[in-house]
Design a protein around this nucleic acid. Structure first.
Lengths: 117, 117
DNA sequence: CAATTTGTTCTATTAGAGCTAGAACAATAC
DNA sequence: GTATTGTTCTAGCTCTAATAGAACAAATTG
């Protein structure tokens, strides 16, 4: 699971990290039941603070994608993995369409959020 | 054009405002060539600072959705209106699918961003 | 033309989020 | 029992968002 972060981005590091893991789950790179690297290990390899990594993990937990337990780490949940996988194709289609129209990710996500409310 | 803002949200007010206008354009509530309320007027009615509203308008200008001119205000562009309208249906479909899966707006937008890169 | 409207630019201040840092603690794994 | 790992707490730093006030420039309006 390769994780690329952009410290210059307006998107917070913890959110970028969560998005990277989320994407990995959606693409099936990480299966349900698999353990993610521990926060301390991942923080070390990414050059981040442990708290920042844990913040990202906790966001994924709030979304129901992973479970966090002391001594064991972060484990991908069954529900999270299957749900995301099903959505992946539809998302790819919309993104392609938006790309064709020359829209930015910000514009598209703004539309999404508007539709949600 | 009804605009609802949530001061407690993590999303900045200027971004929420831009998203609201963007959604109005996408749904056809505001047609190309139409003028948006002036920044001073809108700031007054929303209880915001003029700069905050202008910040939102300027974001929309950077996205090519509106034109800003002194004395005239913010006008919806032809390109912006037509482009967003075409995307609207596809977005609605994906959001419905995501909703069915019980996913949050954050999860979905994270997938979108992941797909963009 | 003159007055009004409206966006632009500038400086300044305040409040909050994000990130880092260090430490102590609790539950789980081995 | 020991090591691992998430949890919680305090602290400080930086940057962005938001507010505020003022002066200015361009376009509209009458």
């Amino acid at each position: 699971m390769l994780i690329r972060l952009d410290p210059a981005s307006a998107e917070p590091l913890f959110a970028q990290l969560a998005a990277a893991v989320r994407g990995a789950i959606a693409r099936g790179d990480v299966a349900a039941g698999e353990r993610l690297p521990s926060a301390r290990v991942l923080a070390e390899s990414l050059g981040l603070n442990v708290h920042t990594v844990l913040h990202g993990y906790q966001q994924l937990r709030d979304e129901g994608l992973v479970e966090l337990r002391r001594g064991r780490g972060a484990v991908v949940t069954e529900a999270g993995a299957s749900g995301l996988a099903r959505l992946h194709e539809a998302v790819a289609g919309v993104v392609a369409e938006a790309h064709r129209l020359g829209l930015s990710a910000d514009e598209l996500t703004a539309l999404i959020r508007r539709e949600y409310s």
